[in-house]
């Protein structure tokens, strides 16, 4: 049986792992390679590396990091942050990344999704969507959640599926950093209306939040950062608890 995935997210800036609280206040949580190795040996299903410095600097640093990660770990990983062209993606995949995630660049140039899917296959194209509610409507935001757009979350999600995205990583800006739980209502709607896997992101604080996002939010995977980096939750304990709730996990 296909199991639910637990995905630690490593935010990378200048080659180090950081975790933003509501994407702004950054804290250092260690060396990405060490952290990646630790998670791969301690129950993570896959990892996401998000380079939050990529738009301003150094594609090369990211490519080198990807190579080191691929050499070190034996579980799949996704790389995102500032990826805006077929060439960017080609380098990262050649260096051993399994998937790439695109966000702002896909909104600015939706055709990029089609190009990536046809050149590399849908299975390696994750479209990350950051959204928050404005007057009760979920609106897509860009540049790490700083810039609002007129795009409706659900319409955009359906469009990226049609264009060939293999997976959606949905971060609720309203929940991210709050540790009050995931945006389960929106997640469930995405999961029901689309036929590609949905990764829940933003709001993990307790084990119960993960249970809720798999059951109520119908998520296929759940991503979190600080609860894992600061060892507030261990992945093995989390998965044991999910199993007692009859949620399929790899144990």
């Amino acid at each position: 049986m296909l199991t639910k995935r637990i995905i630690p997210c490593l935010d990378i800036k200048n080659g180090r792992t950081v975790k933003g609280v509501n994407f702004l206040d950054l804290r250092d949580a260690g060396d990405p390679i060490e952290l990646a190795k630790f998670y791969s040996e301690n129950g993570a299903e896959e990892l996401v590396f998000l380079d939050i410095s990529a738009t301003e600097e150094r594609r090369k640093t990211l490519a080198e990091l990807v190579l080191k990660v691929a050499e070190t770990i034996d579980i799949p990983f996704t790389v995102g942050g500032g990826i805006s062209s077929v060439e960017d993606v080609e380098i990262l995949l050649n260096n051993g990344a399994d998937k790439v995630s695109v966000n702002s660049s896909a909104v600015k140039n939706p055709q990029l999704i089609n190009e990536l899917a046809s050149k590399f296959g849908s299975q390696c194209v994750v479209v990350a969507i950051d959204a928050k509610q404005i007057d009760g409507n979920w609106k897509v935001h860009l540049v790490g959640g700083k810039v609002p757009t007129d795009l409706d979350l659900f319409e955009w999600a359906k469009e990226v599926e049609l264009r060939g995205a293999g997976e959606i990583l949905f971060t609720s800006m309203d929940h991210d950093g709050t540790k009050n739980g995931f945006a389960n209502e929106a997640l469930a709607k995405l999961s029901t209306e689309l036929n590609i896997p949905i990764i829940a992101s933003g709001g993990a604080g307790t084990i119960q939040h993960f249970t809720d996002t798999f059951i109520e939010g119908k998520a296929d995977a759940a991503l979190a950062a600080s609860v894992f980096h600061f060892k507030e939750i261990t992945i093995n304990n989390l998965k044991k608890e999910l199993k007692t709730q009859e949620i399929p996990v790899r144990l």
């Binding site: 199991t3 639910k4 293999g166 296929d220 995977a221 790899r250």
Partner: peptide, 13 residues
């Protein structure tokens, strides 16, 4: 078939 999400992504037995 579209009875399941496609692609299948993740750990299966």
């Amino acid at each position: 078939s579209n009875e399941v999400k496609v692609p299948q992504i993740g750990w299966n037995q």
